[in-house]
Simulated assay, not measured.
Amino acid sequence: MGCRSRVEQSALLRVVAVVGAHATSPWLVVPDGPRRGQGRGAYVHPDPKCLSTAIARRAFGRALRLPAKASVDASAVQEWLAQQ
């Protein structure tokens, strides 16, 4: 999603959107390590630069087919990448 380069799916990180608990960001994008999360998934390189590009392009909302102009919080994915 971020850099738009193609690689095998096994080399990518799958993320899914879940409803957040806060009204300020109704959608949370979380990593789906086992690739079994419910709902539509999107794939991004496990690279902070690619993730920041996807956030800047607002690609998560389109890829996950969220409502138009929905606010998305990808901090859980950023934390996951920092731990890796």
Rank of each mutant, 00 (worst) to 15 (best):
R36T: 03
P31W: 04
A76F: 06
A63V: 01
L66R: 03
A56H: 00
Q83A: 14
A70K: 03
R58P: 02
S71I: 12
Y43H: 11
W27Y: 15
L13F: 06
L81P: 07
S71P: 07
D47G: 04
A63M: 02
Y43V: 02
A76Q: 08
L64N: 07
A17M: 12
A23K: 15
P26C: 00
A42M: 15
V29N: 06
A76H: 13
C50L: 01
H45F: 00
A74W: 05
V72A: 10
Q9M: 05
T53K: 15
V72N: 10
S10Y: 01
I55K: 13
S52T: 01
Q83D: 12
A76C: 06
L51T: 01
G2D: 01
H45N: 04
P31K: 01
Q9L: 00
G39C: 05
P46C: 03
R65A: 02
R36G: 03
P67T: 10
F60H: 12
R6L: 02
M1D: 03
V16S: 05
G33E: 14
Q84Y: 09
F60T: 11
S25F: 15
S10K: 10
R62C: 10
A68T: 10
V7P: 00
A74C: 15
L51Y: 01
L28Q: 14
A56T: 04
Q84V: 05
W27Q: 08
A21D: 09
P67Q: 12
D32N: 07
G41L: 03
A11T: 04
R62E: 14
R4I: 06
P31L: 07
G2L: 00
E79N: 07
E79D: 13
A63Q: 01
V19G: 08
G41F: 04
C50T: 00
V77Q: 11
L28H: 15
P31N: 04
P48R: 09
L51E: 04
V7W: 01
R62G: 14
A76D: 11
E79V: 04
P31I: 09
P26W: 03
